[in-house]
Structures are given as structure tokens and as C-alpha cells.
Simulated scan of single mutants.
Amino acid sequence: MDSNIITTLIVVVIIGYGLFMVFTNVKKFIECNKAKKEFLEGNKNHPEIVSDYIPWIIGCVLIAILVGVAVVFEMQNNGEAVTLAAYGFVTLWVLSLTTEFIVRRTIIFTEDGFFYEKTFHRFRSVNGTTPTGGMFGRYEVRLTTTSEKMQLPKKFGVILKERLDAYQQKRKKKR
């Protein structure tokens, strides 16, 4: 095979995968924002929005700036197509991450539950929360209604655990 064909194929695959990631995450972002907007419009009992995506987005912007600088240097040195495609992929990946950070780093609490991503979960449907290990600590939330497990960032898991404990104490006092 000709090396130009292989190079073109590699570039198309790299950029195609990057575009696919952006497409799927932007689609999820739009769906989640629509669900969040509907939830906020329909909920009048003082929802509290907690988010911490700003530092993550600042990190993504810094990565994008570094990639931009690297592309400029690469272009001055007669950059190869595959290298430029790799830089393009990193740029698309960072764009994809920013939309995912906005979705996964926002949670809405009400007095009887929480809204995360596209779904509202009542506190009474939470079977328990467990901290998990890893580089960025997370909380695993077990739900009784769907017998599924969801992962929350550590900050949201701690807040959820506090609110869940307060909710359970309030229910015990009513009995």
C-alpha cells in the first residue's frame, strides 16, 4: 500500500473518533440541559444547584492553549499530517470533556431528593452511599427502585450523605 493512503486513513480515523466523542457528549449535554430545565420549571420547593465544573473547564482551556502552541510550533517545523491529526484529536477530546464536566459536575438538591444528569431520585430510594477509592475519590450510590448503582464525584457524595442523614433524621422525628 502507498504510505499516503495509510497516512490519510490514520488521519481520518483519528479525527473521526474525535468527532464521534464530541457528538455523543454534546448530544448528552443537550439532553441533560433540557431535562434539568424541565425539572427546575416544574419544581417550586427551592431547589439548590451545586456545581464545581469551573476549575475543570479552566484546566481544559489550559490544555487547549498548550495544544494550540504545540500546533504553531509543529506548523513551523513542517508538521506531518498524523501529528497534526493527533493535536486535532486532543482538541476535540478537550471539547468533549468540557461538555461532560458540565453535565457530571452539576447536581440539584431539593428537600426530598436530588436531580443528577437526567433523572430525579428521591432520598427514600437511596439504599446507601459508599466511598470508593481511586485517584479522584467517588461515591457509589445504590438505588432501591432500579437496583442500579451510580457514581458521584466525592464532593457531591459527601453532600448527598449529609442530606440523606438529615432526611432520615427528619423522618424519624415524624414517627
Rank of each mutant, 00 (worst) to 15 (best):
I107T: 07
I107V: 08
I107Q: 05
I108Q: 03
T110S: 07
E111M: 02
E111Y: 04
E111T: 06
D112V: 09
D112T: 10
D112P: 05
G113D: 01
G113C: 14
F114Y: 10
F114M: 07
F114T: 00
E117H: 02
E117I: 08
K118I: 01
K118L: 02
T119W: 08
F120G: 02
F120N: 04
F120D: 04
F120R: 07
H121Q: 13
R124M: 15
R124F: 11
S125F: 09
N127R: 13
N127A: 10
T129A: 15
T130F: 10
P131M: 10
T132I: 06
G133F: 07
G133K: 11
G134Q: 14
M135R: 11
M135T: 14
F136W: 15
F136S: 12
F136P: 05
G137I: 08
G137R: 12
R138W: 12
R138P: 03
R138D: 14
R138M: 15
Y139S: 12
E140L: 12
V141C: 07
V141A: 03
V141G: 02
V141N: 05
V141P: 15
T144C: 00
T145E: 12
T146M: 03
T146H: 06
S147H: 09
S147C: 05
E148I: 09
E148A: 14
M150R: 13
M150N: 09
M150A: 08
M150K: 14
Q151Y: 08
L152V: 03
L152C: 06
P153M: 08
P153R: 09
P153Y: 15
K154A: 13
K154E: 12
K155H: 03
V158I: 13
I159C: 00
I159H: 00
I159M: 01
I159T: 11
L160G: 00
L160M: 02
K161N: 09
K161H: 03
E162P: 01
E162C: 12
R163S: 05
R163C: 04
R163D: 10
R163A: 07
L164F: 01
L164E: 04
D165A: 13
D165V: 10
D165S: 15
D165C: 12
Y167P: 11
Y167S: 14
